[in-house]
């Protein structure tokens, strides 16, 4: 498969997941702002911006600012509008490899964006969630499980780890707000699953544990890491003509993700939860490094342009 196409699929996976997660996070954040009378709107919104990677925003921050920066503003790289556009742009470049259904679904979502932005925010977030779920479903039922699929899944899983990590830091930073953990669980669509798993014994520590380590819940960090590792391992195995690896992991991305996962799984939970924001930042850094490693190994061929080589022959 062409490196350029592989890279596009990887980023389509990432962008779609990011759109979905951003919509979930915003939805919950706005609900909390409405429901919790004690909350400091300015502080809470600023925190959200920081976690979402929007650096130093100069003027006053309120719910309208975050809506603009994270949902509507096509110029803001963290916004849903931007991300959907980017996903579609990548899909356009990889159109011949996508199934027709998949392309049509992404294109329809992109075309629906202007009218979605005119909806009430909650409806818009619902729309984004529905659309991304639909695309994921179509991908699942129409894409062959070739390299392209693995790259798509890899992008999606890495993004999911990253976004869940951001979500967890938001929650732990806002620990004084009583609604933080139920809110976070709801953002992940994990509230009911959590209640059922722990029989209504709600506690911060348990919620963090659930979102970090639950092996059954597909949006937990560990589940997503396992998915990403699976995709990388398949790619690795597909690329290798000779037998399996004798020791260790030769793929840098696989090594990084595996280490991140085992660190979560084998360290005492208390140690992780003690300073969750720092831990989560480390996790995000691992994701970035893994993404970097995948780029170097599989995509970077697409980047370098060797001008002289052929011309001199």
């Amino acid at each position: 498969m062409l490196s350029r196409i592989a890279e596009s699929l990887f980023w389509i996976g990432r962008y779609l997941e990011r759109a979905d997660d951003t919509a979930r996070i915003l939805d919950v954040e706005l609900q909390v702002l409405v429901e919790d009378p004690t909350i400091d709107e300015e502080h809470s919104c600023r925190q959200l911006l920081t976690v979402m990677g929007v650096e130093e925003y100069p003027s006053v921050v309120n719910r309208w600012t975050i809506l603009d920066l994270l949902a509507h503003n096509p110029e803001s790289p963290s916004s849903i509008a931007y991300v959907i556009d980017a996903a579609r742009e990548n899909a356009r470049g990889a159109r011949e490899t996508l199934s027709t259904d998949m392309w049509a679904a992404i294109n329809t979502m992109w075309r629906g964006l202007p009218s979605a932005r005119a909806m009430r925010s909650a409806d818009m977030f619902g729309w984004v969630r529905n659309r991304t779920a639909m695309i994921a479903g179509i991908a699942d039922s129409t894409m062959t499980r070739d390299e392209g699929w693995q790259f798509f899944m890899l992008g999606r899983s890495i993004e999911r780890v990253d976004m869940t990590a951001r979500l967890l830091s938001t929650a732990s930073l806002a620990a004084e707000a009583q609604l933080a953990w139920p809110t976070t669980l709801r953002a992940c669509g994990a509230y009911e699953a959590f209640i059922r798993a722990y029989r209504g014994l709600e506690a911060d520590r348990l919620a963090a544990e659930f979102l970090l380590l639950d092996r059954w819940f597909p949006r937990s960090v560990v589940s997503a890491l396992v998915e990403a590792e699976k995709a990388l391992a398949t790619l690795e195995a597909g690329g290798q003509r000779t037998g399996g690896q004798r020791s260790g992991f030769s793929d840098e991305g696989l090594r990084l993700l595996g280490r991140a996962r085992t660190e979560l799984e084998y360290r005492p939970l208390a140690e992780i939860v003690y300073d969750l924001p720092t831990e989560m930042e480390r996790l995000q850094r691992s994701c970035a490094a893994a993404s970097e490693a995948v780029t170097t190994r599989y995509f970077s061929l697409a980047e370098s342009r060797q001008w002289s080589e052929g011309a001199l022959l």
């Binding site: 062409l2 490196s3 350029r4 159109r95 011949e96 790619l235 080589e309 022959l313």
Partner: peptide, 25 residues
């Protein structure tokens, strides 16, 4: 898509030793 072949851009191709190669994963 309908021929089942790769759609390449110039940056996907490279010439070496009088042959044309494409950059793949």
């Amino acid at each position: 898509r309908t021929m089942g072949v790769e759609l390449v851009e110039a940056r996907d191709l490279v010439c070496q030793g009088g042959r044309v190669l494409m950059r793949t994963t």
